[in-house]
Design a protein around this nucleic acid. Structure first.
Length: 497
RNA sequence: GGUCGGAUGGCCGAGUGGUUAGGCUCAGCUCUGCAAAAGCUGCUACAGCGGUUCGAAUCCGCUUUCGACCUCCA
């Protein structure tokens, strides 16, 4: 595909991406609820949409990427006692709500940095946009699609569904919802069970509360995304992303609210990433099978055989198409680790190859093949972000790179143009679009000098056929995580784990 | 129960009508003081049963089975 196509969850088909304003792209992604630490499952949307953002930028769009922080806390809408998640947890931990919100927001940012996820252009918080949310609720009420009961405001889903295609995004029928929605206590206020809260009256013990035309309370879960996305991206914007599990009710409700408040649908392209599973089950709080990011990086979790580098996790996620489920296993992560090491090593080799090159290639067939592999990367990205295939092609190119270095491939096998294309492809796709970084520790000059000294001593020992000394140096360094490699030309290189 | 989506070689995972996906593992070879790395070669699968077709992993039907959503959830 020569143009960027994305699978639109709303229409259930791949569509050519055409931004509302040519040259600009608006992207909104549902961010974290900072009432706890992020886990492996959360990493997927943020990494996926980081690649979306990077790719849109690569295509020349000026991207405004908005990712919110949910710090107001939702209530258990259909649940037992209406309660604010954030403040409840805070009481248990005996810290202030703001303290906890700050703590988990910082941890989230730390994780994002390790994953090399670009910062969003705007990261709005729900608590910072209470006024916007109240305004939007009022508009919906004025239009007659919301009603107040006892200090709470609910969206009238039944009325909405009579006029608009409610349930289209999540593929469900209102009648079924009316029948299958559970009968729970404390829902007498609502006209219909399917109605969702826009504003909720705060019970006396509730810590987080704001004044509103309906008394003290707090906003419903869905309204924050609608209020903030329309404020920063406009009442209709290009792409809205998030996990598949948010399709219903969260995204469906966003569509309903915005459609009434603004008179038309809010989003042109809905993108949803699939779940990460563990032993076949979705990773989630309710299943008690989460691996937190800090545990993943430290290896400190019963299910983990070893720690995993953030880049390994990123690579592991991008090796699978974002709309497929991805099953966690130590074996899969370890395979990704080895694979990434090899691929990145090839990239390092490529950067160091000196290739003046000729106008015509020495091996035409190989030259043509390399050119094809390079050009295909764009097609794969354009085909709904097929990062798996991009990575496959980068692997196809690795033996060519290593072959040039190792002498199995002639230095002038590729033309100068093709060689330059190969360089660009690795830099652009591996580094800029997939956002991969080196696994190994950044080397300081001092360390390099020490290692160079050891390498010289070992070279000398080898020359004297003193293999005992040379092996001692190599083995001792290996134990410290420094791997020496004897190159063909007699040079020695090293990598640090 | 309703809606939707899967089932691919030892493992992970692309792929929608005919062509080698790719990675990891494993085996052999080349290079090498040895090792590692690298290169080459091999292992070739599409849940089952029917159907459509010259030809199906890919389309249709049925069966089995797993999961997601329907409740906070990335």
């Amino acid at each position: 595909m020569s143009e960027f196509h994305i699978y639109n969850s709303y229409t259930r088909q791949k569509e050519k991406f055409a931004p509302i304003t040519p040259g600009y792209a608006g992207l909104y992604v549902c961010g974290p609820t900072v009432s706890g630490e992020s886990h492996l499952g959360h990493a997927r949307p943020y990494i996926t949409f980081d690649v979306v953002q990077r790719y849109l930028t690569h295509l020349g769009h000026k991207v405004r990427y908005v990712r919110n922080i949910t710090d107001a806390g939702h209530f258990e809408e259909e649940g037992r006692d209406a309660q604010d998640k954030v403040s409840e947890k805070a009481k248990l931990e005996k810290i202030e709500p703001m303290e906890m919100v700050h703590k988990y927001t910082s941890l989230f940012h730390y994780g994002m940095r390790l994953f090399n996820c670009s910062e969003p252009s705007i990261e709005p918080t729900a608590t910072g946009h209470i006024i916007e949310q109240i305004d939007m609720i009022q508009t919906i009420m004025e239009k007659g699609y919301a009603y107040e009961v006892n200090g709470s405001v609910y969206f009238d889903v039944t009325k909405y569904a009579a006029d608009y295609p409610y349930g289209k995004l999540s593929g469900r029928v209102l009648e079924d919802q009316l029948e299958t929605t559970r009968d729970l206590d404390g829902q007498d206020e609502k006209r219909n069970k399917v109605d969702f809260a826009l504003w909720k009256k705060a019970p006396p013990q509730h810590i987080m509360r704001w004044n509103s035309p309906w008394g003290e309370g707090f906003p419903g879960w869905h309204i924050e995304c609608s209020a903030m996305s329309s404020k920063y991206l406009g009442v209709t914007f290009d792409i809205h992303g998030g996990g598949m599990d948010l399709q219903f009710p969260h995204h469906e409700s966003e569509i309903a609210q915005s459609t009434i408040a603004h008179g038309h649908a809010p989003v042109n392209y809905w993108m949803h990433n699939n779940m990460i599973t563990i032993n076949g089950k979705k990773m989630g709080k309710s299943y008690n099978n989460v691996i937190k990011l800090s545990e993943l990086f430290s290896g400190n979790h019963p299910l983990l055989e070893q720690p995993y580098h953030p880049m390994v996790v990123r690579f592991y996620i991008l090796q699978t198409h974002y709309r497929s489920t991805l099953d966690f296993s130590n074996e899969a992560l370890q395979a990704s680790e080895r694979a990434l090491r090899r691929l990145w090593e090839a990239y390092e080799v490529l950067k160091k190859l000196n290739h003046s090159g000729n106008a015509t290639p020495q091996e035409t067939a190989l030259d043509a093949q390399v050119t094809t592999w390079c050009h295909e990367c764009a097609d794969f990205m354009n085909d709904d972000l097929n990062t798996a295939k991009v990575i496959a092609n980068l692997f196809e190119l690795a033996p060519v790179i290593n072959g040039i270095k190792g002498g199995q491939v002639a230095p002038d096998a590729l033309s100068a143009d093709t060689f330059s294309l190969l360089n660009d492809t690795y830099r652009i796709y591996l580094e800029e679009i997939l956002g991969m970084q080196a696994l190994q520790v950044e080397q300081t000059d001092k360390l390099d000098k020490v290692l160079s000294l050891l390498i010289e001593i070992r070279k000398d020992a080898k020359k004297r056929k003193d293999f005992a000394t040379s092996d001692l140096i190599r083995n001792q360094l290996a134990e410290s995580g420094v791997m020496l490699k004897d190159e063909k030309d007699g040079n020695v290189s090293y990598t640090i784990e």
